[in-house]
Design a binder for these strands. Structure first.
Lengths: 216, 216
DNA sequence: GGCATAATGTACGAACTGGTACGTTTGCGC
DNA sequence: GCGCAAACGTACCAGTTCGTACATTATGCC
């Protein structure tokens, strides 16, 4: 088959692949440049298809961003499902959950950046999306279960609720990734360096456990 | 030309006021819209002067942003100077510093947002600015002093350094403000509400103190 | 094989946006 | 007053950017 290469160009239709391709490229672009900084043309250029398809499948820049945001949130669904929390005591279960959160944020800087970007825009896209809110409820339930068990075991204090706890854990894990650049520039400590990372990972666990163990 | 109304219009020259005016408006615009989302025309419109002056005094959009960023960082210089830390023990001194950090972030959402924005842009502007890095070193020195005193008093563990501690404190205070919108949308808790705020303020103090008191 | 529809490519346009050319006014030293 | 530089206003331009009209090809179905 000596197919004359580009004359008939051999186009193949693959809607699913095209959509996924656009989403992936768009995620990288939005995460890297912010919503306003992202360029539809730049996304199209890095896609195997054309700008036309972005509008064909997604409708526009804002809807594409919305799809990216949803995809990003969806990918972290039930982060805590894979953990075997039931089989250990509350402290150990919590330790695993904290480490999983830490590792997740570390491994998904694009997700972190998108959340930052969404907050810059006052969370107006997320607020529109009912579905996503429910996805995130599960981590609260998990934490609530751990907290209750910890109280029953006499290991945890009883005046900290699941949302307090989630705030404490995720703020640390999130900040480390989101503010890596300014923190690194100001304090000369590269938070992405393996040794620093491991140190932080241990410290957030210590911190939370010490807090919950405190007798007020 | 029947124009009689604003004949000479009584213009007054006041360079300093003009500059400050532009900076203030620009700070609000950048913080609200992000760097790419901010519009030079929008800034000019809300100023008592014209777009021409932005270029006259600052040179361009990017240099204006740079000036805004510098101004924002400079305004928090020596946050810890007003605290009387020397006159109390380490735990009390640290408590005051944490609360001051918390209150500062709470009162300066624009600063918080600008830092978020700067991180979206990989901190490239901050990295260029040597001056600003030194300004921020003071908080580390202060924390270092507290930590050392705490160890001498036998109240603090000795395997946590000042930068570890600063990371723990500022991540919590920062996240509460920076991610207020997505957090609120996902977990139905308005972090800016006075009661929630006071609760958080107490919790971050408890958390840090419990951590440092832990005997490893 | 023919046809309807989904999928895709190309080229272009209208509006926006950062930046500037050009002219005018103010304030200050004398 | 007078002159001159600093301070300021207006109108406009050129490049960019989102979005679309129009044409074309692939694919499933009978």
């Amino acid at each position: 088959m000596l197919e004359r290469m580009p004359p008939p160009s051999k186009r193949t239709n693959d809607p699913e692949r095209t959509k996924r391709d656009i989403l992936e490229v768009a995620m990288a672009e939005f995460a890297s440049e912010g919503y306003s900084g992202a360029r539809v043309d730049a996304i199209a250029a890095r896609t195997r298809t054309s700008k036309r398809m972005i509008y064909y499948y997604f409708g526009g820049k804002e809807q594409l961003y919305l799809a990216v945001l949803e995809e990003a949130y969806r990918s972290i669904r039930a982060l805590e499902d894979q953990l075997d929390i039931a089989s250990c005591d509350a402290r150990e279960g919590l330790r695993r959950l904290i480490e999983a959160t830490f590792d997740h944020d570390e491994r998904n800087p694009n997700f972190i950046r998108l959340v930052s970007i969404e907050n810059i825009h006052h969370g107006k896209h997320l607020k529109q999306n009912l579905q996503l809110r429910q996805l995130n409820a599960s981590v609260i339930e998990t934490l609530d279960g751990i907290l209750r068990r910890g109280r029953d075991e006499g290991a945890f204090r009883d005046d900290v609720d699941a949302i307090d706890l989630h705030l404490a854990i995720s703020s640390y894990c999130f900040f480390r990734v989101a503010n890596r650049h300014t923190f690194g520039a100001l304090f000369d400590r590269d938070l992405s360096e393996p040794k620093v990372l491991a140190r932080s990972r241990a410290q957030i666990v210590e911190m939370i456990l010490a807090w919950l163990a405190a007798t007020k």
